[in-house]
Design a protein around this nucleic acid. Structure first.
Lengths: 206, 206
DNA sequence: TAGATTGTTAATCGATTAACAATC
DNA sequence: TAGATTGTTAATCGATTAACAATC
């Protein structure tokens, strides 16, 4: 019955809902309306209701959404109800920074391995993870059942790293290198590029 | 005559064009077609032509676009033809990582000041920049004519930092904290959030 | 019950793509 | 000239928003 195609725009909003719902839950808020969510997240309430309705009837008319129930449902939709093992290549400043999010991502995702091509980085400790050489990538990824790969190497090496990820069976890639990487269509890639982000902001200066 | 509103989607693609054109220029490629660009950037050639045509007639029929001329034009459109001073708050791992992009961003943008609220960070050196206390933020930003602010502090402090940026006259903000920040409508905010990015990727796992 | 809020349909709005005359 | 490629219009596709019956 998964015939209706969910647009990327919808999928990108789900984690934003989830994050705010988690905040509400921490404050012991029981119920929230699409109105409330809209105000806090700068979104149209109708859009929020529609987004959620793609996946089921999670609310109660006249009441709103049960916070904890909706959290549970969104986590299921995003497949975040089990910890997803993640690997990262590029133990530079950025890679190191992302490893620090491990605590924040707990219950959802976990960076379980860090790799680097540079000799002098290997063996270094980042957040209790020892940096491993690229030669061990395939083996480690398969053993740890890594499903998502993060690329934080310079642009010149990013495509090679992507190829290695694909080859080792990773299903999705988050690329931070300033370059469009190419992968087979069954692998999902998102680009998270600080430099293009910053440059597009400049357009809006007066 | 700036009556036609340019969509955000268009503006976000311009830096991607620019980046690839710069690569071509470095390889001494003189001319490029929308076809070529489309293949390399995974975009529809008609879309690329239309994007560029919003701003002028930059190509030659039957020939394509002159690489260096198009670079010049896109830099003008994005207001990147002069160096834009940028400030960053949050001298943690992520802040430090972003400062390293200064070299890459040369000619376009420059991080000219770094601030942190924590005593022990102040005075530290990052990429030849001394970390300054928050008390100096307004003064430094006004003196250095900073136009864009980057937020790399924990979520709990991000809104306060945004308020300080706005108060000191910053025109646009790039927020890396996992939280939607609120600013007056004349200030432009982009959210660059690693955690939501990663979570939305999970949806596409089988 | 009265008030609130969902889920959903229809209307609107906007973005992408196809097609082609113009022309280098 | 013949082939290539732009700039642009029209067609398509998709996403957002408004409106409201259903109902808690």
């Amino acid at each position: 019955m998964k015939t209706i195609k969910i647009s990327e725009a919808v999928v990108r909003r789900l984690p934003i809902y989830l994050r705010f719902l988690n905040e509400l839950s921490k404050k012991n808020v029981q119920t929230v309306s699409s109105q409330d969510l809209g105000v806090k997240l700068d979104l149209n309430p109708a859009q929020i209701r529609k987004d959620l309705a793609y996946f089921g009837e999670f609310g109660k008319k006249g009441i709103g959404y049960d916070v904890d129930y909706l959290i549970e449902k969104i986590r299921q939709i995003l497949k975040l109800d089990k910890v997803i093992p993640v690997a990262l290549v590029g133990a530079g400043n950025l890679g190191r920074a992302l490893c620090n999010y491990n605590a924040y991502l707990k219950d959802n995702m976990k960076i379980v391995a860090v790799f680097d091509a540079q000799e002098n980085k290997i063996g270094e400790s980042i957040n209790n993870l020892k940096v491993k050489p690229m030669s061990e990538l395939n083996e480690v990824i398969q053993e740890a059942k890594v499903r998502i790969g993060i690329i934080t190497v310079p642009a010149a090496e990013a495509q090679q790293v992507a190829d290695r990820f694909v080859e080792s069976g990773v299903e999705a890639i988050l690329n931070f290198a300033p370059l469009i990487i190419k992968v087979p269509s069954e692998v999902r890639v998102h680009h998270a590029d600080f430099t293009t982000e910053l440059q597009s902001l400049a357009y809006y200066l007066d």
